[in-house]
C-alpha cells in the first residue's frame, strides 16, 4: 500500500503540537543528557590526545647527592649512556640546577639553598615512556644517587581524575537518558490516548497496522532527533569555547594539548545524534507495543 507521506507529516505535526508541553520536556531531557554524553566523549578523546603529548616529552631526571664524587657521577652517566632504551642524556651541573631552582622555587625555599648544597642531575629521555620506570628501578639505589624523578605519577593522577570525571558524566547522562526515554514513551502514550477515536475509526475502515503506527513512531523519532541535534550543537559550542580558551601562545597548556581534530568532533556529534534517534525510536516503539491496540 502506498503510504501517503503527506498524511504522516500532517499527523505527526498535529500530534507534536497537541502535546507540545510534553514534547518540549522530552526534547530538553534528551538534549541535556546527550550534551553530557557528548561532553564525556570530548573529555575522553581530549585526554587521549593530551596523554600522547605528555608522554612524548617525558624526561627522567637522576638527581645526584651534592656530596656525590666525580667518579660516582661519571659511573652513572656512562651506565645511562649504554642503556639501549635511553635516547640521550644531558648532565646539569650543581650551578646550572641552582639557577633553575632560582626560577622554579619560591624565594623562601630558595634562600635555604646554596650552589654547593644543590644536587647535580642527569636528565635523560627514554625511547618509550614506559622505560621511565625501568630507569627509576635501576638507578634509585645506586651509590651517589639522591633520587630519580619522573612525571609519570603526575600524568597518572591527571588521567585518574579525568577517568573519574568521565564516569560521573556518563552515569548522570545514563540516568537522564533513561528519563528521556520514559518521557518520550509517556508523550506517545498520551498522543495515543488523545487519538483513540481516530485510531478506532482507522481500524474500522481498514487502515493497516503500520499506517496507524507510523505517525506515533515518527513523533518519537523526531523528539529524539531534535533533542540530539540540540545536544550536538551544545557539544560544538563547548568545543569552540574550550578552543578559544586555549592560548595559542602556550602550546604546552593542557587545553591546547587536549585539542580535538575535526573528525573527532564530527564523530562525537554523530554518536550523539545516533543515540538520540535510538532513544526516540525505542521509547515510541515500547509505547506503541504496550498502548496501541491494533
Amino acid at each position: 500500500m502506498p503510504l501517503s507521506a503527506d498524511y504522516i507529516i500532517r499527523e505527526t505535526t498535529t500530534n507534536l503540537w497537541r502535546n507540545r508541553l510534553m514534547t518540549i520536556a522530552a526534547v530538553l531531557t534528551v538534549a541535556v543528557s546527550l550534551a553530557l554524553v557528548g561532553a564525556a566523549l570530548l573529555l575522553k578523546q581530549g585526554a587521549a590526545n593530551a596523554e600522547v603529548d605528555w608522554q612524548r616529552g617525558i624526561q627522567v631526571t637522576v638527581w645526584m647527592k651534592p656530596s656525590a664524587s666525580a667518579s660516582e657521577i661519571s659511573a652513572i652517566r656512562s651506565e645511562l649512556a649504554q642503556l639501549p632504551y635511553v635516547h640521550g642524556c644531558t648532565f646539569w651541573s650543581q650551578l646550572r640546577d641552582y639557577h633553575e631552582a632560582s626560577k622554579l622555587l619560591p624565594p623562601s625555599e630558595f634562600s635555604a639553598l646554596t650552589p654547593s648544597s644543590t644536587p647535580s642531575s642527569i636528565r635523560c629521555t627514554p625511547n618509550q615512556p614506559q622505560y621511565a620506570t625501568a630507569i627509576y628501578d635501576r638507578f634509585v639505589h645506586q651509590p651517589g644517587v639522591y633520587g630519580v624523578g619522573s612525571p609519570n605519577s603526575a600524568i597518572h593522577a591527571m588521567e585518574e581524575t579525568i577517568t573519574i570525571l568521565q564516569w560521573v558524566f556518563v552515569s548522570v547522562a545514563l540516568v537522564l537518558l533513561l528519563s528521556a526515554g520514559v518521557l518520550i514513551l509517556n508523550t506517545i502514550r498520551m498522543a495515543i490516548f488523545a487519538r483513540r477515536r481516530e485510531v478506532s475509526v482507522m481500524k474500522l475502515v481498514g487502515a493497516t497496522n503500520w499506517f496507524i503506527r507510523l505517525p506515533f513512531m515518527s513523533e518519537g523519532l523526531i523528539q529524539g532527533l531534535v533533542g540530539s541535534a540540540v545536544a550536538a550543537a551544545v557539544v560544538l559550542g563547548l568545543h569552540e569555547l574550550l578552543d578559544s580558551l586555549a592560548n595559542p601562545n602556550q602550546p604546552g597548556s593542557v587545553l591546547s594539548q587536549m585539542r580535538l581534530t575535526g573528525w573527532q568532533l564530527v564523530g562525537t556529534d554523530v554518536v550523539v545524534v545516533v543515540i538520540g534517534v535510538l532513544i526516540g525510536s525505542v521509547g515510541s516503539a515500547i509505547a506503541i507495543r504496550r498502548f496501541l491496540d491494533v
Binding site: M1, P2, L3, S4, Y7, R197, E198, S200, V201, M202, L204, V205, G206, A207, T208, F211, I212
Partner: peptide, 29 residues
C-alpha cells in the same frame, strides 16, 4: 463497511474530512 448506533464520527473534522479520512487512511490518492 460498518455503521454504529453512536456514529463514531471525529468531532474535530468536517463532514467532508470525516468521509475523506476513510479513503486517506487506506492510502487512496
Amino acid at each position: 463497511g460498518c455503521v454504529f448506533q453512536d456514529f463514531r464520527l471525529l468531532p474535530n473534522k468536517t463532514v467532508f474530512q470525516n468521509v475523506a479520512f476513510a479513503l486517506e487512511v487506506i492510502g487512496r490518492p
